[in-house]
């Protein structure tokens, strides 16, 4: 009973802040998604319709019949794919980095946590501009390769999926590295020594001892990269050439030039539902896996 009271006390600030400052406003948004749109954007209170949700999958053809429209599904799929790729790549290079950090002398570790985040004290736009200067035809990378005699013509990575990946992985790296680092840093080293004593090789120690212990960090990092990655669009558009739309810009557009707040809100709720379902599914699996066999 005391544990229960303690838990409620500890959770109260989080529940209250998020509840009042986000859930209640989102309730307003939910209402907006069922309202009629105003002539100059905004909404008309009191006029209800579910058009916004119908519009996600269907459009009215010339004869005013509903026809399936997969445009929005394709945009959703693209963003999900991009977020998944970004998560995989940040994991791939973030994990070894975190491992290395965790095994540095204690005095250096705090400094490293800082070093990993300092680049992000700079402005997002000029950081992306720096990438453009590096990647574009005749840019810094091209120029260097040319001077070194490694290439004879522009390598042409600007405005390709590769450029998008370079930029996105870059902006999400600390969100992957740090959670993994903190879960690795606490590992009782005697455990690993014991593994070695028992004749485990390096690979075994990594997969049997270190990886399972790092799991909470991996999961936390994956959430911190994947979920915001779904909404990312500034970096992909600047570096990728914006020839295909992302969910983030689609939603932004509804509150901007398209003047369709209800549809923008509906899109956001569809996204929200998808992510929540995925998280729930994961939580169920994780819990089942966590039970002793």
């Amino acid at each position: 009973m005391r544990a229960e009271a303690r838990r409620i006390g500890l959770l109260a600030p989080a529940m209250l802040t998020i509840g009042v400052l986000l859930v209640v406003p989102l309730g307003l948004m939910a209402i907006i998604s069922t309202l009629a749109r105003g002539p100059s954007g905004g909404i008309i209170w009191g006029q209800h319709s579910l058009d916004a949700y119908v519009q996600f999958l269907f459009e009215r053809d010339l004869m005013d019949r509903l026809a399936l429209n997969t445009d929005y599904l394709r945009i959703f799929a693209r963003s999900i794919g991009l977020a998944a790729t970004t998560t995989a790549l940040t994991l791939l290079i973030g994990f070894p980095t975190a491992l290395w950090m965790a095994f540095q002398p204690p005095s250096r570790r705090t400094l490293l946590v800082f070093i990993v985040t300092v680049p992000f004290w700079t402005n997002l736009l000029v950081r992306n501009y720096a990438w453009i200067l590096l990647l574009r035809d005749g840019g810094v990378i091209d120029w260097t390769l040319l001077k070194l005699g490694l290439t004879s013509r522009p390598i042409g990575i600007m405005y390709t999926p590769l450029a998008t990946a370079i930029g996105l992985v870059y902006s999400f790296l600390p969100y992957m590295i740090l959670p993994i680092y903190v879960s690795l840093e606490k590992i009782d080293r005697r455990l690993i020594e014991a593994a070695y004593d028992l004749g485990a090789d390096r690979r075994r120690a990594l997969f049997r001892v270190i990886l399972p212990l790092a799991m909470p960090g991996l999961v936390g990092g994956a959430i911190l990269v994947f979920v915001p990655g779904l909404g990312a669009f500034i970096t992909p558009e600047l570096l990728g050439g914006a020839k295909s739309m992302m969910v983030g810009s689609l939603i932004q557009q509804q509150f901007g030039q398209a003047r369709n707040w209800p549809f923008g809100a509906a899109l956001a709720f569809v996204l929200l539902a998808l992510v929540l379902l995925a998280l729930m599914a994961h939580a169920l699996r994780y819990r089942r896996g966590a039970k002793p066999a």
């Binding site: 445009d71 929005y72 945009i75 030039q257 369709n260």
Partner: peptide, 20 residues
Amino acid sequence: RDCGKAALDLRQKVWTRLLR
């Protein structure tokens, strides 16, 4: 000019389809 809702919806459809 400020085009009406119908014109904007058409633009939006064309734009989304172009970049879908």
